[in-house]
Amino acid sequence: MLAQQLINALGLGAVYALFALGFTLVFGILGVINLAHGAVFMLGSYCALLLVTRLAWGILPALAGAMVLCGLLGMLSDWLLLRPLRARNAPHLAPMIATIGLAGILGSIAQAGFGVDTQRFPPGTIPDAVLHLGGAEISWIQFDIIIVAVLLMGGLFVLLERSPLGRQLRAVAESPRHARLLGIRVERVFLLVAALAGALGGAAGVLIGLSFNAISPFMGQPMLHKGIAVIILGGMGDVRGALFGGLFLGLAEVLTVTWWSSDVRDAVAFGLLLLVLVLRPSGLFGRTLIRRA
C-alpha cells in the first residue's frame, strides 16, 4: 500500500508542479502574481476539448493547439493589461488585482460559452490502460504527466540557465531597467514570458483535464491555491522549486492521508508550508530575488 501511495504522491505532485511552472515563471520574471493563471489553465482544457470534439483532432495536435492559443492569450493579457500598468509605473498590487479581474472575465466567458456542467474528453481520447508496477497501479496518463512535468521543468531550466534567451530573461527578472541599458528589448521579453507561461498553463490544463476527467469553468481556482503554496514552498520564481515544491506538497498530502487522516490533510500540508516559511523564508530552493529599480 505504501508503494501505491508513493506513486499517488508522485502523480499528484507532478500535477501541482505542472501547474506551478508557468505561474512561477511569470512571478520570477514579470514580478507579478498572476491570479489569472488558473483561468488560462482552465481555458487550455476547453481549447483541447473543443479541438478534439468539434474538429476531431488527435489529442497531441489538440495539446499543441491549446498551448498556442493559451500562449496567445497570455501575450494578449500582458499587452492589454500588464504593459499599460508597467508603463504607468503602477504600484505592486495593481497588476495582481488586474489579473484577478482577468480571471473573473475569463471565468464568466467560460461559463457563458461552455456552461457550468463538468465536461470531459470523449472516452478513448487516451488509452485508459493501467500500468502494474509490482502491486501498485498507475494510469498511463498519470505516468505521462510525471514525464511531461519533469521534461518541461528540465527544458525550462535549460532554457533559462543555458541559453542566451534565458540569460536575458534572468537579467530582466532582476532589473528591467538595467536590462534595457544592455539593449535587451524588455517589453518583448515580457511578452515572450507571458506567452510561454500561457502555453505552459494551457498544457497543464489539457493534461490535468485528461487525467481527472473534470473540465469545468471552476477547475482553476483550487489549483491556484495549491499553485501558490507550491511556488512559496519551492522558492518564488524558481523553476526547479516548482517541481520540488509540487512533489513536496503532493507527498505531504498523500502521506498525511496514509499515516494520519484525510480530515487533517490540508491542515498538515499548509502547516508544513508555514513551517518552511518560518525556517526558510525564501522557500526550499531558496534565494529570493530582490528586484532593483
Binding site: M1, Q4, Q5, N8, A9, G11, L12, V15, I208, F212, A214, F218, M219, Q221, P222, M223, E253, V254, V257, T258, S261, S262, D263, R265, D266
Partner: peptide
Amino acid sequence: ETYAKGDVDFKAQLTK
C-alpha cells in the same frame, strides 16, 4: 475518508 471542495485526485484516500 474525506476530501475538500475542488479536489480532483482522490487516489490517496481510495488506496487507504
